[in-house]
Simulated scan of single mutants.
Amino acid sequence: MDQTMPKTCIKLRPGQTYAGKQGFSYFEGIARETTGSQSICMHLLTVPPGGRAKAHKHATHETAIYVISGSAIMYWGEKLEHCMETNAGDLIYIPADVPHLPLNPGNEPAQAVIARTDPHEQESVVLLPHLDSLVP
Rank of each mutant, 00 (worst) to 15 (best):
H61V: 00
I65G: 04
V47G: 01
S37W: 10
T63I: 06
K54L: 14
M74S: 12
M42S: 14
T63L: 06
C41W: 14
M74T: 10
H43I: 01
G70Y: 12
C41I: 00
H56P: 03
T63A: 03
L44W: 10
A55L: 04
S71E: 15
M42A: 10
I68L: 10
L45W: 09
I65C: 02
L44I: 10
V67W: 01
K54V: 02
A59F: 12
T60P: 02
Y66C: 05
S69D: 07
G70T: 11
G50P: 03
S37H: 07
A64Q: 07
H58V: 01
R52E: 13
K54T: 07
S71K: 11
T60A: 14
P49K: 02
P49R: 00
I68Q: 08
S37G: 11
P49A: 05
P49Q: 09
G50M: 02
I73A: 04
T60Q: 12
K54N: 11
L44Q: 14
V67N: 04
G50W: 02
H56A: 03
S71Q: 13
G51R: 01
T60H: 15
K54D: 11
Y66M: 09
G50I: 04
M42D: 08
S69N: 09
A53N: 11
T60C: 09
G51L: 01
H56I: 00
S69P: 01
I65H: 00
K54G: 12
H58N: 14
A59T: 05
Q38I: 00
K54Y: 08
R52V: 03
S69G: 03
C41A: 15
G50L: 00
S71Y: 07
K54M: 14
A55V: 02
Y66E: 09
G36L: 05
H43L: 06
Q38H: 08
K54H: 15
K54R: 15
G36C: 05
A64Y: 08
R52D: 08
G50T: 06
E62C: 00
R52S: 06
I65S: 06
V47Y: 03
V67G: 02
I73D: 09
T63D: 12
A53W: 04
C41L: 11
A55I: 01
L45A: 08
K57V: 01
S37A: 12
S37F: 07
C41E: 15
A72D: 12
H56L: 08
